[in-house]
């Protein structure tokens, strides 16, 4: 299918530790269309981060395959960029330099890309600041800008807002939605927050733990921007919660 950006087929992952083997993922499959906003929701430790890392190419699956744009993923690629749970900025580089980290060249085009990313996350005024001078929310925005400047087709986000306070978090969520709207990137968001997934995504994969498996994929057919107090929103939230804990 031409519209397929990400495709995971029967991915499984087993870790071998000193205490024995741990099955983290069992036969997980998903497809994300180009430009789609897809979330994976699950409780802590259900393997959703491992799934994202496999899609990112940072981890090899024990079984199954991952495709990006129809090409088999065997490692990190320029078609995907990751936003980690922590900003993971380079402390010796300023905001601008951090954003340019993934760029191979330092020419006029690169400068423009950085400029655009800065503008997109609203940090143009802080281009010269160093990571230790930034708040948690700002640092995470730099991390987002760094991923965007890499110009990937798909953005893989691993609980990017979980370390932020509630207010900043809400703010960042609407910013992410705006970024998605403006760039049209495919976004895969891994989160433990049902509300976050409902607020942002078009489809939500519900994941259960030990071993991680998909229970269901829920279509969210609500117009943006979404109102967390709308009855349909609350109904979906309750439904997903029961699916998660069942």
């Amino acid at each position: 299918m031409a519209g397929e950006q990400l495709k995971v087929v029967d991915a499984s992952k087993t870790f071998y530790t000193e205490w024995g083997k741990v099955e983290v993922l069992r036969s997980v499959s998903l497809t994300a269309a180009r430009g789609e906003f897809l979330s994976v929701v699950g409780v802590s430790g259900c393997g959703k981060t491992t799934l994202l890392r496999i899609i990112a190419g940072l981890e090899q699956p024990s079984g199954g395959e991952v495709f990006c744009n129809g090409v088999r993923v065997s490692g990190p690629g320029s078609d995907r960029a990751v936003v980690f749970q922590e900003p993971r900025l380079f402390p010796w580089l300023n905001v601008e330099q951090n954003i340019a980290f993934g760029l191979k060249q330092r020419n006029e085009a690169a400068r423009r890309v950085v400029e655009q990313a800065l503008e997109l996350v609203g940090l143009s005024a802080f281009r010269q600041a160093y990571p230790h001078e930034l708040s948690g929310g700002m640092a995470q925005r730099v991390a987002m800008a760094r991923a965007l400047a890499f110009e990937p087709e798909a953005l893989l986000m691993d609980e990017p807002f979980s370390a932020l306070d509630a207010q900043t978090r809400t703010h960042m969520q609407s910013e992410l939605q705006e970024i998605w709207r403006r760039t049209g990137k495919t976004i895969l968001l891994v989160t433990h927050s049902i509300a976050e997934a409902l607020l942002l995504s078009q489809r939500i994969c519900i994941m259960t733990s030990a071993p991680g498996r998909f229970r269901e994929v829920v279509e969210v057919d609500l117009p943006y921007p979404r109102d967390p107090d709308a009855p349909e929103f609350i109904r979906l939230k309750k439904y997903i919660l029961t699916q998660l804990t069942a």
Binding site: P87, L89, F90, P91, Y130, P131, H132, A139
Partner: peptide, 8 residues
């Protein structure tokens, strides 16, 4: 110092 506090 930046290193110690960065990447929070």
């Amino acid at each position: 110092r930046m290193y110690a506090q960065g990447g929070k």
